[in-house]
Simulated assay, not measured.
Amino acid sequence: MKRIVIFASGSGTNAENLIRYFQNSEIGSVIQVLTNNPQAKVLDRCKNLKVSALSFNRTAFYHTNDVLNVLKASQPDLVVLAGFLWKFPDFILHEFPDKVINIHPALLPKYGGKGMYGSYVHEAVVSNKEIETGITIHYVNEHYDEGAIIFQAKCEVNASDTAEMVAERIHELEMEHFPQVVEKLLKSQEPISLPSGS
């Protein structure tokens, strides 16, 4: 059974969606959620779903090995950033190569980078009169939103759309595709068994 650890900073709708998706899965399960926000609603969601959850501060994340040691103890097959707003430190990424992924509410490389999250992204998309936007699931590297792209899904942006309307469409794409992409990544980690006698 593959082990998933989620990092989230806020409400946790994506985290809850992933937890529920894998509750009865034979492929993997969400074993822990970590947050940099002790007031985050994701903590309440985890409590209701009976999933271990911890909050941490900037010192524990960037200046000590506290968060790294928690991750090492959990031995995740995949670390999933689901609305996590802090830049991931290099020393943690080096311990989990090609195992940390993020979801971004735009079609990268457009509308990525520091400060581009949530409503800020959707407001920029609308004000620039884009005709489409979407979600990007990508590997995390040392730069904001610049890791290799794994998957993208698109939706239309109409001239009359508000940022809130775009956000609803993006949320639907996230709910539909994020768990499926995580599942495919976990499956792709499976060792390939060769036929006997080959």
Rank of each mutant, 00 (worst) to 15 (best):
V5L: 04
A15Y: 00
E16Y: 05
L18S: 05
V30L: 05
I31M: 06
I31D: 01
V33F: 07
V33E: 01
L34Y: 10
N36G: 09
A40L: 01
K41S: 13
K41I: 09
V42L: 00
L43A: 10
S52W: 04
L54I: 13
T64C: 03
N65K: 14
D66P: 03
V70W: 08
L71A: 08
A73P: 11
S74D: 10
L78C: 00
V79F: 03
V79N: 02
A82P: 06
L85F: 08
F88W: 02
P89D: 09
D90G: 14
H94N: 15
E95I: 10
E95L: 02
F96C: 09
P97T: 10
K99V: 03
V100R: 06
I101M: 09
N102F: 03
N102L: 04
P105Y: 10
L108E: 00
Y111G: 07
Y111T: 06
G112H: 07
G113C: 08
K114H: 14
M116L: 13
Y117D: 05
Y117W: 07
S119T: 13
Y120L: 14
V125P: 00
V125M: 04
V126R: 08
K129E: 15
E132A: 11
T133M: 01
T136Y: 04
I137C: 02
H138W: 02
Y139I: 03
H143L: 14
I149L: 10
I150D: 10
A153V: 08
A153Q: 11
E156G: 12
E156C: 12
N158D: 12
A159C: 11
S160R: 13
A163F: 06
E164D: 15
M165K: 14
V166Y: 02
E168K: 13
H171P: 07
H171D: 04
E176Y: 11
F178Q: 01
Q180A: 11
V181G: 01
K184G: 11
L185D: 05
L186M: 04
S188Q: 15
Q189Y: 05
Q189E: 12
L194A: 14
S198I: 15
S198T: 14
